[in-house]
Design a protein around this nucleic acid. Structure first.
Lengths: 172, 172
DNA sequence: TATTGTTATACTCTATAACTATA
DNA sequence: TATAGTTATAGAGTATAACAATA
């Protein structure tokens, strides 16, 4: 192969050269990651003034809805490992937003509750997060937003285990 | 407040008690995170036999499509910080899947290329990733998959900066 | 035996500051 | 001055093994 013009184009890439991601952009995994990162960076900034991260906001919201829930149930509900939940609850408890109290039916377990301060904070943060979603999704109409949520929860509840995939392969 | 029956229900939560995430499940951010985590765990398992992770697979695929691209252009294209890209390219180069060669037009820059081995690996891995997506999305029909990709890329390209949101708030 | 909460630990991912050599 | 690649480093996020108390 000689020194063709095409070779020069391929090898000389200036800063402004357009970059293609066509092969990746039809993969759901790639699109999910990119979209999630976009909203995640934004959400982190929205929550920072409250002293919250996405995980702590999620937990406060879950506790409002499920008062007295056990740590392991909460961890399972949001697909988190128990040891990681422990340190996050430590953080929330040290700020007096969450309490651990004894479970009268099981001495191993602890009931998790929001404090009044924690509930108030959750309310304020939740309103801001909703407002941010409105802004973030302003270029989607109502139907599109509903479709997106419906499709994402369909994915969430669908076959998410690679074992299905691998056993599918065996079956072929 | 006395010891009502409702209090007992709230405080006695056994292992099987259903947990509600209603307040979170209409937030796009929450759904994106949960959906992404689901497919991400699967993808990691699909890529492991190739010695690849999601980020290394993404880079090999980008290099196939953009041979000779500079490290900083590649990093910008997939929203990655340059220092993190350097260590990943180090890893790919040490496995002889990627080369760094001199850029004749700019002595600071390095051109990134797939090796033959790297290109072959990318081809095999890409086929497996596509097959896995088929399996992962088997309960979505063709229209739904197309809609999902369209909506996700609309999000990606939309207003993703919190500055928009904050300036929106000021404007009110 | 199994489960709850916990400690310790490690690995990946992500982000920032600062350096060098070039432009 | 600014940019390309790099080094060092630190903080999140995530995952596993193992333990004491209890079921």
């Amino acid at each position: 192969m000689g020194k063709s013009a095409q070779l020069l184009v391929n090898t000389h890439r200036e800063a402004g050269t357009p970059v293609s991601d066509a092969a990746l952009s039809n993969l759901i995994g790639y699109n999910l990651k990119r979209s999630f990162n976009g909203i995640y960076i934004d959400l982190a900034e929205v929550l920072r003034p409250f002293g919250l991260r996405m995980i702590t906001f999620t937990i406060l919201t879950m506790l409002r809805e499920n008062p007295g829930i056990r740590l392991s149930n909460l961890a399972a509900a949001i697909d988190m490992e128990k040891p990681n939940m422990v340190s996050v609850i430590d953080e929330l408890a040290s700020r007096a937003w969450v309490t651990r109290s004894a479970d009268p039916y099981d001495k191993r377990a602890r009931q998790l509750h929001l404090t009044e301060t924690g509930a108030a904070l959750q309310g304020l943060a939740y309103a801001e997060v909703c407002a941010h979603e409105e802004s973030f999704l302003q270029h989607l109409d109502g139907d599109e937003r509903a479709q997106l949520i419906a499709l994402l929860s369909k994915i969430r509840q669908g076959p998410t285990k690679v074992e299905n995939f691998l056993s599918d392969k065996k079956r072929r």
